[in-house]
Computed example of a mutant assay.
Amino acid sequence: MSPQEMKQLKLNRIYKALLSLLADHPLSDISVSVLCRNADVSRTYYYRNYKSMQEIISRHQEMAIKSYLRILPHAAHMNFTQLMTAYFRLMQRQSTENILLINAGLTDTLIKTFRTVYLFLVDQKIIDSSNTRSHHRYFPSFMAGAVISIQIQWIQEGMKETPAEMGKMLNELFSFAAQK
C-alpha cells in the first residue's frame, strides 16, 4: 500500500470512528484517546496530523468532494449548474453523515470545507471566476454560507428536489445563467 493510500485509509478510519462517536456523544465529550482507540490509530498519529476533530471532518469532506469531482465525466469543463448538481448528488449520498454533523453543531466546519473546495475549484480553473463579484474577497465565504444553508434546509426537509433541480435553483439564485 502506498503512503498516500495509507494516509487515506487512516483518515477514513478516524473519520468513521468520529461519526460513530458523534451518534451517541456531543463533540465536547469525545476524547482524543477514545477516538484513537475506536479508529485503531495512535494518539501520536492524531496529534501529528490534526489540530482538532473538526479538521478531521474538513479533510475527509474535502477529500470526498475532490475525489467525487475527479470521477465525473468532463469534470474540468463543468458549468456552475453541473457542479452544484454533482455536489448535491454527493450530499444526497452522504445525507446520513451530514445530518449527524449538522445535529452535532458542526455547520461551521461544513461551511469552511465548502469554502476551501470552492477556492480549490477556482484555482484549478474548474469554476469560471471571471465575473466581478467572484473577485470580491468575501465572495467565497458568501457562497459557502449560502450553499451550506440551502443544503441543510434541503436535507432537513427530506431532499424533495432532485440534485439536478438543486443545481438549477442555485444557478438561478447566484445569477450564473450567463455562464456556459
Rank of each mutant, 00 (worst) to 15 (best):
T44D: 08
P3D: 10
K112N: 11
T44Q: 10
N12H: 10
D108K: 12
L19Q: 10
R48K: 14
E55M: 07
S149L: 01
S31Y: 06
Q179V: 12
I56L: 02
T113A: 00
L110P: 03
E165G: 00
M6A: 12
Y118A: 09
S95R: 13
R48G: 00
M63A: 08
E55D: 01
M159L: 13
N103W: 02
F114T: 02
L35E: 07
I155G: 00
Y46L: 02
D24Y: 14
L101I: 07
Q153R: 11
Y68K: 03
R137M: 10
Q94A: 05
A64I: 09
N98A: 12
R93W: 10
I71Y: 10
T132Y: 12
M91K: 15
L9T: 14
Y138S: 00
Q151M: 14
V147A: 11
A23K: 15
A17E: 08
H74K: 15
T162L: 05
L83E: 08
E157L: 02
F80K: 09
I57G: 02
Q153E: 11
I102P: 04
A39Y: 06
R43F: 04
S2A: 05
N98P: 04
R48M: 03
Q156K: 15
R137W: 15
F114E: 03
V117A: 01
F114V: 01
H77Q: 15
K168A: 05
D24I: 13
R59N: 09
E165T: 05
K125Q: 13
D24R: 10
T96V: 15
R70G: 06
V147H: 06
R13K: 13
D128V: 08
Q4Y: 05
N103D: 15
A23Q: 15
S28D: 09
F174W: 03
I14M: 04
R43T: 09
T96M: 13
I102R: 08
T81N: 13
Q61K: 10
Q124S: 03
S129A: 11
T132I: 04
Q124Y: 00
P26F: 13
Y46E: 02
H136G: 01
P26C: 04
S175K: 05
L22D: 07
Q82R: 14
E157C: 05
S42H: 02
A164Y: 07
I148V: 04
K66F: 11
S52M: 06
G105Q: 07
Q8L: 09
L18E: 07
S33V: 03
M91H: 05
L18T: 10
L22P: 01
Q4E: 08
L121N: 06
I56C: 02
T162D: 11
I57N: 01
R43A: 10
K51E: 08
I57V: 02
M143Q: 13
T162G: 08
H60M: 11
P140R: 02
T107L: 01
F176K: 14
Y68F: 12
P73W: 04
T116G: 03
S33L: 06
L9G: 07
Y15D: 01
W154S: 06
I127S: 02
K7I: 00
T116N: 06
L22G: 02
R93V: 01
S141N: 15
P26H: 12
L100M: 14
F142C: 05
Q156C: 09
E157V: 05
H25C: 09
T113S: 04
Y68R: 04
Y118I: 12
T116C: 08
E165H: 01
L90M: 00
S134K: 10
D40H: 04
A17F: 07
Y118E: 05
A76P: 06
Q61S: 09
T116L: 09
